[in-house]
Design a protein around this nucleic acid. Structure first.
Lengths: 340, 340
DNA sequence: ATGAAAGCGCTAACAG
DNA sequence: CTGTTAGCGCTTTCAT
């Protein structure tokens, strides 16, 4: 009966039916589906054929009801995603999807915010969500500690503030800043300044401190800096201030590509050519680094890899509730383009 | 016993327990939870108190098993999200979340791609997903027609190619292009050209045709154009070609902000000041419009509203499987910044 | 208006 | 190694 297999069955196929077709019990079919090793291979064969013939697909709701596993994890994005246009996001999603999708695990996206928190906690506790990945959680955000205290599976991007014990993934911020310092100094720059991120943010702190430490090692103990907020607009404002206070500036390390993106036009309008008059180095290697004029030399974070590692950690926490907290730190790389 | 209510219950509260506490049957509690009107108000009251006291939350898996509703919808993003850095994405998610979150519906994000297609179709058919929103689906992508043929709830962003009958929401592309044309001509520009998007894309086609039609109405029948691919890099290449072929260019309509972003530096390096020598108008009002130098005058799509409308349409399709296909078209607005 | 009971499709003891 | 059985927590007739 050609055509029968391609036509969508009106009614979903159940374990029961497969069992009937294969002439075995539901339990056996279930074992085959779940790859339980202790099944006679000839029976397994028969069952598999019945599965293929019927087009059986497990009903996840039913499974979820008994296993108490939802098969979905939350990705909690900072609200700034919309404000700043989030150049990061695509890379994060890609990295996460790479591991989650082959497993058939759903990625539920959520925007941080108090009303979300309640839903998130409820969903996690109800078992509608198995765990959560928190991206760039805001300082003072109670969510990380709340989830950690409830012993719910959670992984953070970036180190947590304070002494919170939560699994997280980070890039070696200080090492990245050092790469920038070495490059700038290696270029012969001597009047180097930096635009930092918001200093209530661990990543911003680590980049600034790391940069200063590296510069000190390279012989410069005093590095002028101004604090931005990671937005392109704050990059512009900060560059203006820096230029006013240090007109002889010849090197600039900007703690995010987005801020660098904002700083570049300011430099240009002030008559400074990049990279001839001042070399500028960014951080992230986000998509905005490429659309900068000139294209930005920057410290690259392996965001996709980091995101993939976050899910892996999370899934492990889900599988082994008593798994100890752990953190993994990735090495940054340096991407030389035209701005330095 | 202070502290008892705040401590997370080890075991989830079930309907059964609430029923016991309230002294009624499970069915009654279920009715209260689901706001069935035919419940005596005093009983409803009692039950509600029991619910509050126990901190009861329905188990969605159990509910889903019987209602055959997953309570989650998919958001299928184009793969280019990662390549182009997707300035759109934040706005789409925000719009969707605005309607989905209060309803407790989960948004499952997916990246377009053949391996995704199988999963998506399977999930939809098994009821693990209630419907799907397809963003900027690629031309020739079989997914839209596949889902439509299976009569699964689906909504598209942008009009479908061909004669496919699928619910969708779009912005009035031609009207947007007309706004650009009128602005440019109103500025006194007479040597106007345009950088189009990929012409296998409905939006790109509509913008180009709309622009030409408007220009014709304004007295110019021949508008030079070159075809880009919506990426910033193609914007740069296209601007180069246009400048080479039409050095006297004084007005430019670029079919996406990202391409305009790429075109601007090319103009500058060619010695053309924007907006003094050439006025440029973009399309989208994505985040990249703001980081352009100078900030981009552009045609704004009400992306958040459009996204919200997409979910509303989708949820309606889910609720009423025989609901007729419909499309809603939003009016663009014009945002004057400094590039024109 | 409320309760009793059936059953959604699946997994997991427990026997055999 | 396989089958039987008992639920998982909820909604929904069907009686009452």
């Amino acid at each position: 009966m050609p055509g029968e297999l391609v036509a969508p069955p009106t009614r979903a196929v159940t374990l029961e039916e497969v069992a009937r077709v294969a002439g075995v019990s539901r339990a056996t079919v279930s074992r085959v589906v779940n790859r339980v090793p202790t099944v006679d291979s000839s029976i397994r064969e028969t069952v598999q054929q019945a599965i293929d013939a019927t087009g059986y697909r497990p009903n996840l709701a039913a499974r979820s009801l008994v296993t108490r596993r939802a098969g979905s994890v939350a990705l909690v994005l900072p609200n700034e995603v919309r404000i700043f246009g989030d150049p990061f996001f695509g890379r994060v999603v890609e990295g996460v999807m790479g591991v989650v999708q082959p497993l058939g695990v759903h990625l539920v996206v959520t925007l941080a915010g108090s009303s979300t928190h309640e839903h998130l906690v409820a969903d996690l506790r109800q078992g509608r969500l198995d765990g959560a990945i928190l991206i760039h959680t805001h300082t003072g955000d109670p969510l990380p500690s709340m989830l950690a205290n409830m012993r719910l599976p959670v992984v953070l991007s970036g180190r947590p503030m304070g002494r919170l014990r939560i699994s997280h993934v980070d890039v070696d911020q200080a090492a990245g800043a050092r790469l920038a310092a070495e490059h700038l100094v290696g270029l012969g720059r001597r009047r180097i300044a930096t635009i930092a991120g918001p200093l209530d943010n661990p990543a911003a702190i680590d980049r600034l401190e790391g940069f200063r430490a590296a510069m000190a090692d390279l012989g410069t103990v005093d590095v002028p800096f101004v604090e931005g907020d990671f937005s392109s607009e704050s990059g512009a404002r900060s560059a203006e201030r820096l230029l006013a206070e240090h007109p002889d500036l010849d090197g600039l390390f900007v703690a995010s590509d987005l801020m660098a993106h904002g700083a570049l036009p300011v430099l240009r309008r002030a008559g400074r050519r990049v990279p001839e008059d001042v070399s500028v180095v960014g951080f992230d290697d986000s998509s905005s680094a490429l659309v900068c004029d000139p294209p930005l030399t920057t410290v690259r974070q392996p965001v996709e890899d980091m995101a993939a590692e976050m899910v892996r950690l999370l899934l492990d926490h889900i599988d082994r509730p008593n798994r100890p907290v752990s953190s993994v730190v990735f090495a940054p790389t340096f991407v030389v383009r035209q701005s330095a």
